[in-house]
Design a protein around this nucleic acid. Structure first.
Lengths: 197, 197
DNA sequence: ATTTTTACATACGGTTCGTATGTGAATTGA
DNA sequence: TCAATTCACATACGAACCGTATGTAAAAAT
C-alpha cells in the first residue's frame, strides 16, 4: 500500500469532520453544538474546520447535503419498488415519514437546515427528495390521474404533510398507534390530488 | 390618575420587552439578535429580561405566542365569516397561508420558532389552532362529508400543510405567485378528506 | 415604622466564534 | 537530490455573548 497523498488525507479529514458534525448537530442541534468539542471528537481542531468549510454554516451545509442525498435515494428506491404511479407516491410518502422519524433528519435537515441555510430549494443539493416527489407526480399527471394543479406546489405540500406526520409520531406516547393513524391520514390527504377516488 | 401599581409596571416592561424582541428577532433573526442591544433599545437591561422570561428562549416563546395567537384568531374569524363547513376549512387554511407574507411571521414563527422551540404542534398557540380545526372537521364528519379517518390525525396534518405552504411562501422569491400556487395546492390536498369531490 | 419581598440593574466568569499567525510535512523544480 | 515553496492544519488571541450571582431601591406586608 503506497503512502497516502496529500489530497487523500484531506478528503479523510473532510469525511471525519462531516461525520462529527452530523453527530453533534443531530444530538445537540446546530446552535448548541460546539466546534471545539466537535472537532476534538474527530481528533482535529477548529483550524481544520475553517480551512475545509469556511465557517460553521459551511459544515452544516455539507452535512445537510449528505443526509439529503441519502434520503432522496431511499425514497426513490421505495417508489420504484412499489412500481411507481399512485402506489409509488404513497410508498415515497411512507418512506419519507419513516426517514423523518430519525432525530438526525428532523433536527438537521428539517429544522436547523431551513432556519440557518434558508430556502431548501436553493440548497446545493437542490432538495433531491423534493425532486423525486416532483418526478413521481409528473408521471401521474402524464397519465391524466392528477388534477391540473402546480406540480411543485403539490410536491412541497405533500412532503410537508409527511414531515408533520413524522414529527407527530416522534413526539407521541404511543408511536405504533400514532404511526398507523398518521399514514392513513397521509393517504387520505394525498388522494386529494387524484382526479377520481 | 392614581399611581401605577407594581404589577402594572411589570406588565408594561413585559410588553416593552416582547415588542423589542419581536423587532430584533424579525430583523436579525433569533440567533443573531443580541439581548444587550435588544433590552437597551427598550430602555432596560438583561436583568429585566431574565427576571420576566427566564432566558432568551423564553422571550422567543412569548413573541412567538403573541404572533401565532393573532394568526390563529384571524384564521378562525375567516373560517366563521365563510360560514363554517368545507368553505370555512378552506378559508382558515387560506388565511393562515396569506399571513406568511409578513416578514416578521416568516422569520420568527416559521423559521426560528421550529428551530429553537421545537415542534410547532406542541406550542400553546398551535394547540388552540388545532382544536379549532378539529371542531371544524367534526362538524363536517357529522354531516357525513368526511371519510372515516381519525379526526385528530387529519387536523394535525392539515395544519401541517398550511404551515408548510406558509413556509414555502415565506422563502419564495415571488411571494404573490407562490401564494396562489400554494393556496390551490392546499385546497387540492384538503379535498382528499371529502367523501366525494 | 420596620421588615420583607421583588423587580430590575450591575458585575463577573465561562464559553464560543472567527481571525491572525505559526509549523511541519508534502510537493515542486532545477 | 536538495532547497524553495505551498498548504493543511494547529495554536494563539480578541471580541462578543449568554447566564448567574450579587446588589439595590422601591413597593408591599406586618
Amino acid at each position: 500500500m503506497p503512502a497516502k497523498t496529500r489530497a487523500e488525507k484531506m478528503e479523510e479529514t473532510r469525511i471525519k469532520l462531516i461525520a462529527a458534525g452530523r453527530k453533534a448537530f443531530g444530538e445537540k442541534g446546530y446552535a448548541a453544538a460546539s466546534m471545539d468539542e466537535l472537532t476534538a471528537g474527530a481528533g482535529l481542531t477548529r483550524g481544520a474546520l475553517y480551512h475545509n468549510f469556511g465557517d460553521k454554516r459551511g459544515l452544516l451545509a455539507a452535512v445537510v447535503d449528505q443526509i439529503d442525498s441519502a434520503m432522496a435515494q431511499k425514497a426513490k428506491d421505495a417508489g420504484a419498488a412499489a412500481g411507481g404511479g399512485w402506489d409509488g407516491l404513497v410508498a415515497e410518502g411512507r418512506t419519507y415519514i419513516e426517514l423523518a422519524l430519525e432525530p438526525e433528519v428532523q433536527r438537521i435537515v428539517l429544522l436547523d437546515g431551513p432556519a440557518f441555510l434558508g430556502d431548501p430549494s436553493q440548497w446545493p443539493s437542490q432538495n433531491r427528495c423534493l425532486q423525486a416527489t416532483i418526478k413521481t407526480l409528473k408521471d401521474l399527471y402524464d397519465q391524466g390521474a392528477i388534477k391540473p394543479v402546480d406540480i411543485e406546489a403539490l410536491a412541497r405540500l405533500l412532503n410537508g404533510v409527511a414531515l408533520n406526520a413524522a414529527l407527530w409520531v416522534a413526539t407521541s406516547d404511543d408511536p405504533q398507534t400514532t404511526l398507523r393513524k398518521a399514514i392513513d391520514a397521509f393517504e387520505c390527504l394525498a388522494s386529494g390530488v387524484l382526479t377520481k377516488s
